[in-house]
């Protein structure tokens, strides 16, 4: 059901990847994505794929979890593949009516699809291995140098934390409301688009009312505990780099260098 959505889900096990500083993991994800766009040949993807497989292995998160994240965007991948395949001109392999598949088109389409898949899997590792709270702490810390120029680093981090924190709550709420309306005979699965859109009203109205109620309660609870923004707030767990974090930073450089070399020499 709706609760199976894995967006931003954390997979709770002990592993080296889980213990890494969130800033390192964010840097890794960022550089990995850049790397994926530098690569334009299969040999590069093989290399990146091996690195990805290693990280997945070390993270102890089951592969089927990573693949699950692909399901919702499977459709987009297929469309991208087909469009790329048909749009690019070159040496014609198959021709049918006004469509023609070219060798270059096929290659470009495969590269695009592989890139998308690896992008999703790679970036899901970040959220699968980092607790949302640590993630936002990491964001805050990474953005804090810009505070000097009036950049609201703490506020942004707090908003992100709350937004992430509310995803499961709202999903749970949606699930509950859907069930309650289904118990009254509502049917969300059949009918044409218009009918289905109308069927959303019994879910959306209570959901919005509930969301405002929860938001209000939460604001109240924060105020009751004297929350007044980021100034002078200290942290219970201050983030400190360890040796493994520096090693990981070093590996990013190696990874990017290897990808650039592969691009130049092959």
């Amino acid at each position: 059901m709706i609760r199976d959505i894995t967006l931003g889900q954390y997979y709770n096990v002990e592993s080296l990847i889980h213990r890494l500083d969130p800033r390192v993991k964010m840097a890794w994800t960022f550089m990995y994505i850049i790397g994926l766009f530098i690569i334009n040949d299969f040999i590069g993807f093989v290399f990146a794929g091996i690195c990805l497989a290693l990280v997945i292995y070390m993270s102890k998160v089951p592969v089927k979890f990573m693949v699950r994240g692909l399901k919702p965007i499977f459709f987009i991948i297929v469309i991208t593949f087909i469009l790329n395949m048909l749009m690019i001109g070159g040496e014609v392999l198959v021709k049918w009516w006004i469509f023609s598949i070219t060798k270059e088109g096929l290659k470009q389409a495969s590269i695009m699809a592989i890139r998308l898949i690896m992008l999703i899997i790679g970036s899901s590792i970040l959220t699968l291995t980092t607790k949302p709270i640590n993630l936002t702490d990491g964001i805050e810390k990474a953005l804090s140098p810009f505070k000097r120029f009036g950049f609201p680093a703490h506020e942004i981090a707090m908003m992100t934390t709350i937004a992430l924190r509310f995803i499961p709550t709202l999903l749970e709420e949606t699930d509950k409301i859907m069930k309650a309306q289904q118990a009254r005979g509502a049917d969300f699965e059949s009918g044409n688009i218009l009918r289905r859109a109308k069927q959303l009203i019994p879910i959306l109205v209570p959901l919005f009312i509930g969301a405002f109620r929860i938001a209000n309660d939460m604001a109240m609870a924060m105020e009751a505990r004297c929350y007044r923004g980021g100034d002078h707030r200290t942290k219970m767990h201050s983030m400190q780099y360890e040796k493994r974090d520096f090693v990981a930073y070093g590996l990013i450089v190696v990874f990017l260098a290897a990808i650039i070399l592969l691009r130049i020499y092959f």
């Binding site: 309650a180 118990a183 209570p206």
Partner: peptide, 28 residues
């Protein structure tokens, strides 16, 4: 099944959504 078995959830008041009481009761 739903015709035979009516289920009132924990805190059912959070599932109300219609403009009027009568319309809400008429939903089922």
């Amino acid at each position: 099944i739903r015709k035979k078995v009516g289920l009132v959830f924990q805190y059912p008041e959070y599932q109300l959504f219609e403009e009027t009481v009568a319309k809400d009761i008429a939903f089922g």
